[in-house]
Amino acid sequence: MTELAIAFTLNGERRALRVPAHRTLLHVLRDDCGAVEVKEGCGEGVCGTCTVLLDGEPVSSCLVLAPRVAGRDVVTLRGLCEGDALHPLQEAFVAHGAAQCGFCTPGMILTAYALLRERPHPTRADVRRAIAGNLCRCTGYTKIVDAILAAAGPGEPRDGA
């Protein structure tokens, strides 16, 4: 089994480890880095549960081979918190009841975070399009969309592309 030495930043901290070449980022995060805040829902890139930010872009970590993250920047949901303060998206998810079982929540919030950075004042349709790759089985999405729009705050929504 080929092992490779890789180094990357995880939530701002440098990590260096040896991993089997075939290991996915998801398993490196969960099993080698203890980052169990990243959840596995399907293991084949469909459900979006394992979403992390790779150099700022949301990716399904189950589809990324760990050697590909060498030298890059990985952010999980824990990376959005600053001390005890919640990110506005996290606040909004609490206030709107957007987390039920909570299993899709880490990936959902990260996807929403990337959306709001691109488009600070999205329309409802923009939000639905952005989270279409993150499945939720509990909420029916309505409260998730409400929460993301609330976190975006008032502003001029632009039509989605």
Partner: peptide, 12 residues
């Protein structure tokens, strides 16, 4: 909000 909501949005 539920008592378990904060832990869930922080993935704790």
């Amino acid at each position: 909000p539920r008592h378990d909501a904060r832990d869930k949005v922080e993935a704790r």
